[in-house]
Amino acid sequence: MKILVIQQKMIGDVLTSTIICESLKEKYPASEVVYLVNTSTIPVLKENPSFDRIIEFKNENRDSKFAFIKFLIKIRNEKFDLVVDAYGKLESNLISLFSNSREKVSFYKKYTHWIYTKTIPRVASPITNASTAIENRLRLVYSESELVQNIKRPKIYLTTDEKEAAKRLLVTHKISSNEPLFMISVLGSEDIKTLPFSYMAMLLDEIVKTTDGSIVFNYIPSQKEAARSIYNLTQPETQRKIYFDVFGKSLREFMAILSQCTALIGNEGGAVNIAKALDKPTFTIFSPWIIKKDWNMFEDGKMHDSIHLIDMKPELYGSTSPKKMKKESLELYKEFTPDLIIEKLNLYLTQFSNQK
């Protein structure tokens, strides 16, 4: 049996959807599972045994109709028996349709359900602490009665060489192994997913004050100046504990450095999902417009905890869903002041004081 799993979104989604591949491998042990993903997300998948190979969806396939038609022909020639479309947008709709597979599964949408032989409605509320992001993906493989016993956690696989290189990097920068080391997601992927700079700086001051730990930043190269702005807003005592130049030059290097950290703290995004897949503790600050229950995967209030403005000031939302407040997110962020976060953050940090 030859199976294609499609997930063309960002790193967090691609990583999370590996559980679909893993589940299909378990359900059909003799099958070949192929994972179709965007080029930029491939580094998070290396060494992962949940699928047999990757089909790369390149930017040119999106930018050129001719290239996309050639890609569709390539997919059809693969002769897949089953297609599982976890993306569910126009590109993957067309890929599923032109695959000519006898079985095609995706999430239900009233205007595309006819493309698929089976569609699964997304369930709005989780039944475990895995989050709806996990549970709904697994519904593409398992029946409702099978779901709970087949809950899975996404995993990242690093080589020994990668981890050893990260250890050497920390030693080179004289980062002590006798104190906590926190990776901080100081910036989100966009402004509406980023805590105000001055607020984040105050949280960094609090982390150092509470734990006497060291700090490294997570950001992409284009965000370096913004990250430096946050650094400049911190207290001198905090700056002495921030190793600004310890930075992964690639996604794999970042993941290897994160594997050596005590925990990841900061804005919700792909880095949080990566930390969880590396079995690293996380404290997540959700954007005011993100629906928390969709992405607070495996939260237990200890190893993984989070905070959302709606937890602290529900009156700002009334009966309105956070997602419908997206246009107001920057104004809502002003209400998400550090004093609202610090009490819960400090409680979380106590478990890491004076330990690596």
Rank of each mutant, 00 (worst) to 15 (best):
F254S: 12
L82C: 13
P236A: 09
P29I: 10
L345C: 08
N267F: 11
K25I: 06
P338T: 09
I54P: 08
T159A: 02
A227P: 00
V44D: 00
T18Q: 08
F107M: 09
T194A: 07
S99Q: 00
I175S: 03
N273Y: 14
S321H: 14
I192L: 05
C21T: 12
T16C: 14
E315A: 14
E253K: 14
I207D: 10
K356Y: 13
A271S: 14
L97H: 10
K249H: 13
K326T: 12
N93T: 11
L258I: 00
L72C: 13
K280Q: 04
L45R: 11
Y243C: 11
L97A: 13
K70G: 11
K174T: 06
S64C: 14
P221V: 04
N354Y: 10
I291W: 04
L90Q: 03
I207C: 05
V208N: 04
L233Q: 15
K152M: 12
I127E: 04
V84E: 00
I342R: 05
I95C: 08
K293L: 06
E179G: 00
I120A: 05
K209G: 02
L278D: 13
F336L: 05
L349Y: 11
K74H: 12
N48Y: 01
G270P: 02
K25H: 03
V272E: 12
I175Y: 09
R240N: 13
H113P: 01
I175G: 06
S125N: 14
V148I: 15
M202G: 07
E146K: 06
M255K: 07
I75Y: 10
P314M: 05
I42S: 00
A277C: 08
M10E: 03
R122N: 10
V141A: 10
K224T: 10
F98P: 00
F51E: 03
L278A: 05
Y116L: 07
K79G: 08
P288H: 02
A226G: 00
L258H: 02
E179I: 03
T112K: 02
G88P: 05
Y116G: 06
N59D: 15
I120G: 01
I257E: 09
L15V: 02
S64D: 01
S143N: 15
T18V: 02
M1S: 15
T41R: 06
E146H: 12
K109W: 08
V123H: 13
I175E: 11
L169R: 13
F51Y: 11
P314S: 09
T350S: 12
S250A: 08
Y142D: 00
D305S: 15
I6G: 06
K9E: 05
N218V: 03
L94R: 09
I3A: 08
Q260R: 14
L138D: 07
L347V: 13
S64I: 09
L187F: 04
E315W: 12
K25Q: 06
W289K: 10
K356G: 06
L90K: 13
C21V: 02
Y108M: 01
E331V: 07
